[in-house]
Design a protein around this nucleic acid. Sequence first.
DNA 1: TGGCAATATTCAGTTGATCTATATACCGAT
DNA 2: ATCGGTATATAGATCAACTGAATATTGCCA
Lengths: 117, 117
Amino acid sequence: MSGMREPTFLILTALAAEPRHGYGIITDVTDLSGGRTRLAPGTLYSALDRLAAEGLIEVDREEIFSGRMRRYYRLSEAGAAALRIETEQLRARAAAASARLASRRTGLTRSVLGAMQ
Amino acid sequence: MSGMREPTFLILTALAAEPRHGYGIITDVTDLSGGRTRLAPGTLYSALDRLAAEGLIEVDREEIFSGRMRRYYRLSEAGAAALRIETEQLRARAAAASARLASRRTGLTRSVLGAMQ
DNA sequence: TGGCAATATTCAGTTGATCTATATACCGAT
DNA sequence: ATCGGTATATAGATCAACTGAATATTGCCA
């Protein structure tokens, strides 16, 4: 029940605005993450199967483009809902961590200020 | 090399402000996550070993409290740095997903508006 | 002609989380 | 006095997801 992993999250994000095919997702994720995360093909295609089985994504259409098949996936309504929830949780987690890190700094500041009196 | 998982992130967050012992981390993580995530003991103690081995946390001290040992851990400087970086990435990911989800809504809005003309 | 980008598939290996069980000590309530 | 719950740590078996590498095909460009 606990949070999805980064690649999964990025795959859903890549599909959020419009349908894409596998390779398109790979390149989009690279962009999305500012080049930090690149999706290995093994990760992608097994994740696509899994997410489709869970109903978070659906096959949109299949095309033959210059002799190669392209299978487009789209985010389902359930997928969009899951992504929204997960996004909120990321935000909450980031906020919690920031607050704690800040109070850590405050701790330091206090002892410095204390020493200065 | 890719992002840490949620339990790991929450453990580091729990240690960010002040040292805590294992059980204290479990209860703090429950709070931190608004009760959504609860750390199983197996998850915690293996994560503590791993994080200590990676140098992200350190043993702070050991106490005997009413006959039971308590081992306190603290976040190392490296751990704080890792947590800051990871926090920034969570924020970035959340922002990217929000933007995509919004443009999805825009897409819908556009076609509705289009149909209305 | 040779190599690379685009594209999809599969599989073996690794990692980290989960669940379950075990153990001990104290405390409050029967 | 005893039973159950809370506090606390540890270990092992298992599972889910990610990783990396190998395989295959087509078209384009040097």
